[in-house]
Simulated assay, not measured.
Amino acid sequence: MATASASVDISAPASEVWQLIRGFGSLPDWLPYIPNSELHEGGRVRYLANPDGGVIVERLMAFDEVGRS
Rank of each mutant, 00 (worst) to 15 (best):
R44K: 14
H40N: 12
D9M: 13
I56M: 10
A2F: 13
R59K: 12
L27N: 03
A6S: 09
E41A: 15
R22V: 04
S37Q: 06
L39D: 03
V45W: 01
I10M: 10
V45M: 06
F24T: 01
M1C: 04
N50M: 11
L20R: 14
E16W: 06
G67N: 11
L39C: 04
E65N: 11
A14F: 10
S15N: 13
T3I: 09
D64L: 09
V8L: 15
P51R: 14
I56G: 00
V66C: 07
F63T: 04
L48H: 07
Q19H: 13
G53N: 02
I56N: 03
A62W: 08
L31W: 14
V66E: 12
R68N: 01
A4E: 07
R22G: 01
A62G: 05
G54N: 04
D64T: 06
E65W: 02
P51A: 07
G67Y: 03
I34K: 03
Y33F: 11
Y47P: 00
R59Y: 01
L60A: 10
H40K: 15
F24R: 05
S11D: 08
P51S: 09
V57I: 15
R68A: 08
Q19A: 15
G42R: 10
V17R: 06
M1Y: 00
A49L: 08
H40T: 13
D9R: 15
Q19Y: 01
A4Y: 08
E16V: 06
G54E: 06
I56D: 03
S7F: 12
R46F: 00
I56V: 13
P51D: 07
V57F: 00
V17A: 10
G53L: 02
V17N: 03
Q19R: 15
S15G: 03
G42F: 02
R46N: 00
D64Q: 04
D9K: 15
E38H: 13
P35W: 04
E38C: 04
V66F: 08
G67M: 02
Y33Q: 15
S15L: 08
L39E: 04
V55C: 06
P32V: 12
E41F: 11
D52S: 12
V55E: 10
T3Y: 13
D64C: 05
Y33P: 07
N36H: 10
P13E: 14
S15W: 06
L20H: 02
P35A: 06
A49C: 01
D64H: 08
I34F: 12
V8M: 15
